[in-house]
């Protein structure tokens, strides 16, 4: 077991205690891994599977089904643009293209300085103020190209 994962053991035990069946703990444990490790590696998926008496494919199923889980590291500022219909109607697509052009990356690529990664996500439950963008855990609403400039400038 990789040492970085074994350091999560105490938290995993606490999560497991909340559920009648170990497999129900898969989602919170995957979140925990992503928060602490930055992404979910193959090694981590194997570890979770073994820990919950599941087969590896059952974990990959979850990790690939939910767009919020990622299998690769991201930059310091993870820019998550909503791609669902209301935001799309309010110009999310051109905003995305603008952002990608400006940073010189493709979707899910990280800038060479490790500062930014741009990804698309499903509805962020804020459709009333579409288009919306999340930077790590902070939500930004009614995004315009100008607002975007300010947001980027504020990122470390």
């Amino acid at each position: 077991m990789p040492s970085s994962l074994s350091s999560l053991e105490d938290q995993v035990v606490r999560i497991l205690a909340r559920y009648p069946k170990p497999r129900s703990a898969a989602m919170p444990i995957l979140h925990l891994i992503q928060e602490t490790q930055g992404f979910i590696s193959k090694e981590a998926m194997e570890w979770v599977a073994a820990r919950l008496d599941l087969q590896p494919a059952q974990i990959l199923e979850l990790v690939t089904f939910y767009p919020m889980f990622r299998q690769h590291p991201v930059g310091r500022n993870h820019l998550k643009i909503c791609r669902t219909l209301p935001c799309a109607l309010m110009g999310a697509e051109s905003l995305r293209d603008h952002l990608l052009r400006k940073l010189g990356v493709k979707l899910d690529e990280t800038t060479p300085d490790g500062r930014f990664t741009v990804s698309e996500v499903e509805c962020l439950a804020c459709c009333g103020s579409a288009p919306v963008l999340m930077v790590n855990d902070d939500l930004h609403e009614n995004i315009t190209p100008e607002k975007l400039e300010q947001i980027l400038a504020a990122c470390l």
């Binding site: 194997e46 590896p56 494919a57 199923e61 089904f65």
Partner: peptide, 19 residues
């Protein structure tokens, strides 16, 4: 064995083998 599962979602769904 549960070697197989369904990976991804929507139109990108695909049968997966292990990881």
């Amino acid at each position: 064995a549960h070697t197989l599962d369904l990976g991804n979602r929507g139109v990108k769904s695909q049968v997966i083998v292990d990881l």
